[in-house]
């Protein structure tokens, strides 16, 4: 029965894939007409950044990016709603601890660089935030129960920072007559940098907190097996 269904599914999916391949092929076989690419690069100079992908993410389609930060936040809120964080991992040995001491600052530094370089070359808030998150993950793996994150109140402010700054900037521009997320010429670069910096911190904290996997709170991170390992580094 189960095998039959799996077979049926396989056949159906193969047919679907064939259909989709045909559709893609038919589409690609056409003359490539002008798309958004030309338009996007034609107006790149007005965006305040020179990396076209960053221009799309933070200027042309900044609204999407704002909502994407909201999606990230929603996932974290969902994780928090499920209960406190589980106990952390065993404290790392001296060799790993030394490595961690070395890697984490480097990751943070690299994150800062990626954030800055995003304005004109591949990079940007998400890449930088991901590196910060990776630093947090490494800390957690090395036995730091809070993964280097501050206490709950500060953590809450940090995770809303990205979407918050984004939305406040957008709302402020709307209130001052420019329209939502319509940057005034000349100030685009600095506003984007402000938003990106806030977003980087927020993404890093959110990813780390999601990895910690539960609500932060007094003592909850230290129970269970973590009880004897509350010594701060």
């Amino acid at each position: 029965m189960k095998r039959d269904l799996a077979l049926l599914l396989g056949i159906l999916l193969a047919l679907l894939a064939a259909l989709l391949l045909w559709a893609l092929h038919a589409t690609l076989a056409l003359e490539p007409g002008p798309r958004l690419a030309e338009l996007a690069s034609a107006r790149l100079e007005e965006t305040g950044v020179s990396n076209p992908v960053t221009a799309v993410l933070l200027n042309y389609r900044a609204y999407d990016t704002l909502l994407e930060l909201a999606v990230l936040l929603a996932a974290l809120l969902g994780i928090w709603s499920l209960g406190p964080a589980p106990a952390g991992y065993q404290r790392s040995g001296p060799a790993l601890a030394a490595l961690v001491d070395w890697i984490v600052p480097l990751a943070i530094l690299a994150g800062g660089y990626l954030l800055w370089v995003g304005g004109h070359a591949p990079g940007g808030a998400f890449q930088a935030g991901a590196l910060l998150g990776a630093a947090g993950v490494i800390l957690r793996l090395s036995g730091e129960p809070s993964a280097g994150l501050p206490g709950e109140p500060a953590q809450r402010w940090l995770v809303v920072l990205g979407a918050g700054v984004f939305a406040v900037v957008g709302g402020g521009l709307l209130a001052s007559g420019f329209g939502f997320l319509t940057y005034p010429p000349g100030q685009a670069k600095w506003l984007i940098l402000l938003i990106e910096s806030a977003a980087t911190v927020a993404i890093g904290v959110t990813l780390t907190a999601a990895y910690v996997g539960g609500r932060p709170g007094s003592g909850t991170a230290h129970n269970g097996t973590g009880q004897s390992r509350t010594v701060q580094r």
Binding site: R35, A37, S41, T65, L72, L76, I79
Partner: peptide, 27 residues
């Protein structure tokens, strides 16, 4: 030069996928 718009869409999509994955794992 490549069209930057789909690239940006994919970046957004990846973040959405990461969020959803995290929530699924927690659940």
């Amino acid at each position: 030069p490549p069209d930057p718009v789909p690239h940006a869409l994919v970046l957004t999509g990846i973040v959405v996928a990461v969020s959803a994955t995290a929530l699924v794992l927690a659940l």
